[in-house]
Design a protein around this nucleic acid. Structure first.
Length: 326
DNA sequence: GGTATGCAAATAAGG
DNA sequence: CCCTTATTTGCATAC
C-alpha cells in the first residue's frame, strides 16, 4: 500500500497507516475551545472593485478590528498522558456524536451574483506572497512517520476481541522512557529541539522529512497522541543513534545537526485576509469551487489555502456548536 | 536563546 | 475533484 500522493508539495506520510487505535483518543479530542467568529458591520475599506457579495463580505470584514475578544479557558488537548492507558477496545472509529447536517443552499441568488462579477480582472499568476506554501520541491519522499502499521482491514488480527493486549512495541511505559532518554541524550549532545527536527530530513529515511521544534518538544514532553508518539519514535531513535555515533567517532556530520527544509509548511493568513474570509463564511459557509477560486484571487491566496480554510472553518463551527450543547 | 503552548493550517482516509 | 472527520504538525509568541 501506499502510493505517493503527487498532489501535495510535500508528499508526506507516504506510509502512514494508523490502525486508528481503538477509540483511544477519538473522543477525548472531540472538542477544543474556540473563539469568536464574526464581527459585524461598519466600515468599508475594500469594496472598491467588487461586486455585491464579495464587496459586502469584504465590507463586513473590513470592519471590526476592535471587537475581537477571544477568551476561552478551555483546554482539551488530549495528550499522551491522558490516554496512555487503554490500548485496546472495540475500536470506535471516532465518530462524533454528530449527525450530518443537511445544509440547504442558503442563498442561491448570491451565487450567480458572486460569480458573475468575479472576473480574472486582476490576473495575478503569482502573488509575491510571503509564506509561499507551495515550494517547488522536486523531491518526493518527504513524508513523515513510517511507523508501525496495523492492518487496517486485516483479515484476522491475532488479537481481536481480547480485553487488552499491551503489545511490547508500543508499550506506553516504554515510549515514555524513551522520550525521557531521548531528551537527556539530545541535551548531552548539545543539540536543540529545532536542530533535531531540521536534521531529520537528512536521515534519508523514506517518507521522513523535517519536523518543527514544536513537534520535537511535544514528543519529549509526551504531549502527542500515542499513535503519533509511536510513529515518531523510530525516526527519532534513528537520529539519536546516528548522532551519538558521529559524536563518538568525532565525525563531523553537520547533516545530523542541522537540516534541510523538508517539513510541512504552514501558511499564515494575515488578519485582514482572515477577516474577509470570515465575512464570506458568514454569508456562505460552503462556497462552490468557483467561488473559492474567486475569493482566493481576490485575497491573493492560493485556492487550496482558501478551500482548506473553509473546511477547517466548518469543522470549527461544528465543534463550537457541539461544545455549546455540552 | 532554547522551550512550551495556543490556535489552526495541512493531511490522511473513507465517502 | 471536493467534503467530512480525525489528526498531525507548524507558526507565533508567551515563558
Amino acid at each position: 500500500m501506499m502510493a505517493m500522493n503527487a498532489k501535495q508539495p510535500f508528499p508526506m506520510h507516504a506510509a502512514l497507516q494508523e490502525p486508528k487505535y481503538s477509540g483511544l483518543h477519538a473522543g477525548a479530542e472531540a472538542m477544543r475551545r474556540v473563539c469568536l467568529p464574526a464581527p459585524q458591520l461598519q466600515g468599508n475599506i475594500f469594496g472598491s472593485f467588487d461586486e455585491s457579495l464579495l464587496a459586502r463580505a469584504e465590507a463586513l470584514a473590513a470592519v471590526d478590528i476592535v471587537s475581537h475578544a477571544k477568551s476561552h479557558p478551555f483546554k482539551p488537548d488530549a495528550t499522551y498522558h491522558a490516554m496512555s492507558g487503554v490500548p485496546c477496545g472495540p475500536a470506535a472509529p471516532a465518530a462524533l456524536p454528530h449527525p450530518a447536517l443537511p445544509a440547504p443552499p442558503p442563498h442561491p441568488a448570491l451565487d450567480a451574483e458572486l460569480l458573475e462579477h468575479l472576473s480574472p480582472a486582476l490576473a495575478l499568476p503569482d502573488p509575491p506572497a510571503v509564506p509561499a506554501p507551495l515550494p517547488p520541491h522536486p523531491l518526493g519522499a518527504v513524508g513523515h512517520l513510517p511507523v508501525a502499521v496495523g492492518p487496517p482491514g486485516g483479515p484476522a488480527p491475532p488479537l481481536p476481541a481480547a480485553p487488552c493486549l499491551p503489545d511490547v512495541e508500543s508499550d506506553p511505559r516504554e515510549l515514555e522512557a524513551f522520550a525521557e532518554r531521548f531528551k537527556q541524550r539530545r541535551i548531552k549532545l548539545g543539540v536543540t529541539q529545532a536542530d533535531v527536527g531540521a536534521a531529520l530530513a537528512n536521515l534519508k529515511i523514506p517518507g521522513v522529512g523535517s519536523l518543527s521544534q514544536s513537534t520535537i518538544c511535544r514528543f519529549e514532553s509526551l504531549t502527542l497522541s500515542h499513535n503519533n508518539m509511536t510513529a515518531l519514535r523510530p525516526v527519532l531513535q534513528a537520529w539519536l543513534e546516528e548522532a551519538e555515533a558521529a559524536h563518538r567517532d568525532r565525525a563531523a556530520k553537520p547533516e545530523l545537526f542541522a537540516g534541510a527544509e523538508r517539513k510541512r509548511k504552514r501558511t499564515s493568513i494575515a488578519a485582514p485576509e482572515k477577516r474577509s474570509l470570515e465575512a464570506y463564511f458568514a454569508l456562505q459557509p460552503r462556497p462552490s469551487s468557483e467561488k473559492i477560486a474567486a475569493i482566493a484571487e481576490k485575497l491573493d491566496l492560493k485556492k487550496n489555502v482558501v478551500r482548506v480554510w473553509f473546511c477547517n472553518q466548518r469543522q470549527k463551527q461544528k465543534r463550537m456548536k457541539y461544545s455549546a450543547v455540552h
